[in-house]
Amino acid sequence: MTEQSSSEVEVEHDDGFNDFIGPLYQTQVSDTEWDFWFTPEQRHLNGGGAVHGGMLMSFADHVLGKIVWEAVDQQPCVTMSLNCDFVAGGKVGEKIAGKAEITRKTRSVIFVKGELTQGGRTVMTASGIWKLVGK
């Protein structure tokens, strides 16, 4: 990972989608809790000047997926289901933060929910189901 400060790290580069849409940032708050964020740029917008829904869903997938991945001791897992409610529009230039928590974990699937906020205002709520690969 790329060091930003003692507590802030840019998401590990995977030469793939998150690199392409990022930079995305995260910091670990406790054993099970992480804070995530990115700052919307012009390239993240829709034609109306708001943050594109695809970018918000992509960030939500990253936030929820990271929480799941840590909860299963970094075993391979994939998104099975993701539900996103677009509560408000996101603005360019102001940090969008993400939080998520596990709802339930079984042997093969993990239920998770999360929220994206901007300036304390909810812009998206999301819930999803991840599957452990090979289980």
């Binding site: 793939g16 695809g54 992509s58 994939v78």
Partner: peptide, 21 residues
């Protein structure tokens, strides 16, 4: 290569859902 991640180089949910949107 822009749409995938992980060792298996599979499309992410974010990429697929952006295409869906």
């Amino acid at each position: 290569d822009r749409h995938v991640s992980g060792p298996d180089r599979l499309a992410t949910a974010g990429a697929l859902m952006t295409f869906a949107d």
